[in-house]
Simulated scan of single mutants.
Amino acid sequence: MVINTIISLKDTVVQGEGNIVSDMGGEKVMLSVKNGKYYNLGDIGGEIWELIQSPTSITKLVNMLTASYEVEESECLQQVLSYLEHLLNEGLIEKR
């Protein structure tokens, strides 16, 4: 299967600035000051958010998640790329 993405395994991502994040009932929620929107990052999305506090490669991110959860690497990669692309499109993360 060919996945057409704007983020790939060779990329590194990091949290964008200007976001206020809080823990609500075990899930991360975020207010983007820049675009005035609230986001529910969820449980695993919140974990991804924490893992990208400093620049982190997509490969390292997928490896950490597959070590923590029972998920096939290909499925994890597909879901992580989709999630990160959403965050990137919203201006919440930076790609390096």
Rank of each mutant, 00 (worst) to 15 (best):
M1S: 06
M1E: 02
M1L: 05
V2K: 03
V2E: 05
T5D: 04
T5Q: 08
I6G: 00
I6K: 01
I7Y: 04
I7G: 03
S8L: 07
L9E: 11
K10L: 05
K10S: 03
D11Q: 01
T12F: 07
V13Q: 00
V13H: 08
Q15K: 09
G16D: 15
E17A: 13
E17V: 10
G18E: 05
G18R: 14
N19A: 15
D23M: 06
D23V: 10
G25C: 04
G25F: 01
G26M: 15
G26A: 14
G26E: 15
G26Y: 15
G26H: 15
K28M: 06
K28E: 05
V29N: 11
V29A: 05
V29Q: 09
M30C: 02
M30F: 00
L31P: 00
L31W: 06
S32V: 07
V33P: 01
K34Y: 05
K34N: 13
K34W: 04
K34T: 12
N35G: 04
N35Y: 01
G36Y: 10
G36K: 14
G36S: 13
K37G: 10
K37Q: 14
Y38W: 10
Y39M: 14
L41Y: 01
L41N: 07
L41T: 03
I44G: 07
I44S: 07
I44C: 07
G46D: 10
G46N: 06
I48H: 02
I48E: 03
W49M: 00
E50D: 09
E50T: 02
E50W: 00
E50K: 03
E50L: 03
E50G: 06
L51Y: 04
S54F: 00
S54C: 00
P55K: 09
P55W: 14
T56G: 08
T56N: 07
S57D: 12
S57M: 10
I58Y: 00
I58C: 01
K60D: 09
L61M: 12
L61P: 10
V62L: 08
V62F: 03
V62S: 12
V62Q: 11
N63T: 06
N63E: 11
M64V: 07
M64H: 05
L65N: 11
L65G: 14
T66W: 01
T66A: 11
T66K: 08
V71G: 15
V71L: 13
V71H: 12
E72R: 12
E73P: 07
C76Y: 02
C76N: 04
L77A: 09
L77C: 04
L77V: 00
Q78M: 06
Q79S: 13
V80E: 02
L81W: 03
L81Y: 04
S82A: 03
Y83R: 14
Y83N: 12
L84D: 04
L84W: 06
E85C: 15
E85I: 15
E85R: 15
H86S: 12
H86Y: 13
H86L: 13
H86D: 13
L87E: 02
N89T: 08
N89K: 07
G91E: 08
L92M: 02
I93R: 02
I93L: 02
E94W: 11
K95C: 12
R96W: 00
